[in-house]
Amino acid sequence: MTVTAYLILASVLFTIGATTVLVRRNAIVMFMGVELMLNAANLAFLAFSRMYGTLDGQLAAFFVMVVAAAEVVVGLAIIVSLFRTRRTVSVDDESLMRH
């Protein structure tokens, strides 16, 4: 039971997120899958940071969180504007990148 346990947990979470992006068609749910993948990466970062005994991994996870916040803001804005024009958030119906 060492860092491997955390790595496996991070792998499982990352896989769930990636499969969500592949399988689900609701854009909001897909986006949550992306968030889960980022968090899995953060978990691995923190485990490695503790393994090496340095704080750089925590800094990396911190920056990942900042970027994730920015990404969520922009992504949800895109979803809202898509919903306004198309009346749907299903990615199947949004195959054109124009009005």
Binding site: T2, V3, R50
Partner: peptide, 21 residues
């Protein structure tokens, strides 16, 4: 997804990680 899980867990298991420092 299952393939990704196998790859990731395999890599995590095979990696020679030392214990927590």
């Amino acid at each position: 997804g299952a393939g990704l899980l196998v790859v990731l867990v395999g890599a995590a298991l095979r990696a020679a990680v030392p214990g927590f420092n």
